[in-house]
């Protein structure tokens, strides 16, 4: 196989980035989605719109703002420096933060839909059986929203694997740290190494197809999916 050591490292790094991002997104996205699904606040629409922004914004916009704000003179940069962490551009942590922004709607929206579909009925029933709110969440909401969590995880993971523009702008192309598969494909194409580009690009294509196929097959088999 004509994949170089750097290519293999890029693939591993991509999987690592996507896994970690998905975990962070589930922890962060669940309360946001829950709040969005249940609230009548006048902030519901503005917050929902902010969460959905990465769907329509070019990744270069997110990348540009992250580059400036995570830099030594930016808001995030000043904060991380005062915490003794230095700046986060050109680091794996920086990529995780960028990816969390970039893939947020892909996790929040399926979760929100799942929570809205459950409605208030099952929770009220749980309350009459004296289940506390946390108890009700873990024993009633989680099992009912399971398909939503599966969709959110798969989409969050796959969308992060497909990330390019943000990484290009804040990554710095460092092998093993920020050189992910999509950037490595760009490097190969730019330098006319088409054989390696084909291997990586073909792999990405196959991966994406399998993920979506699994997701759609899972949907049609489960009636619980609305």
């Amino acid at each position: 196989m004509p994949l170089t050591h750097a290519d293999v490292a890029a693939v591993w790094l991509t999987l690592e980035l996507a896994s970690l991002t998905t975990v962070v997104l589930l922890l962060l996205g669940t309360p946001i989605a829950w709040w969005l699904a249940r609230t009548d606040s006048r902030w519901k629409q503005p917050i929902g719109a902010i969460v959905a922004l990465p769907l329509v914004l070019p990744p270069t916009v997110i990348g540009f703002y992250l580059l400036v704000s995570m830099g030594p003179h930016g808001v995030i940069g000043q904060l991380t420096q005062s915490l003794g962490l230095g700046t986060l551009t050109f680091t794996f942590t920086g990529l995780v933060i960028g990816s969390v922004f970039y893939s947020l709607p892909f996790v929040v929206q399926p979760l929100q839909n799942a929570f809205e579909a459950i409605g208030r009925g099952p929770l009220e029933a749980a309350a009459t059986l004296r289940a506390g709110p946390w108890d009700a969440f873990f024993t009633v909401v989680l099992p009912l929203a399971k398909p939503g969590f599966v969709t959110a995880s798969v989409l969050g993971f796959a969308h992060t694997v497909g990330e390019f523009g943000v990484v290009l702008m804040i990554g710095g192309n460092i092998p093993g740290k920020t050189q992910v598969a999509s950037v490595q494909i760009y490097n190969h194409v730019e330098t006319m190494e088409y054989a390696q580009a084909h291997w990586l690009a073909g792999g990405m294509l196959l991966f994406s197809f399998i993920v979506l196929l699994a997701l759609y097959s899972g949907r049609s088999n489960k009636r619980i999916w609305q």
């Binding site: 003179h73 700046t87 710095g172």
Partner: peptide, 22 residues
């Protein structure tokens, strides 16, 4: 090694330095 960051062109390299990130 490990401190090198690469821009895809000399313009992007300049931008990394101009923003203070490098």
């Amino acid at each position: 090694k490990g401190k090198l960051v690469e821009g895809q062109s000399i313009s992007q390299t300049h931008q990394f330095i101009a923003t203070g990130n490098a």
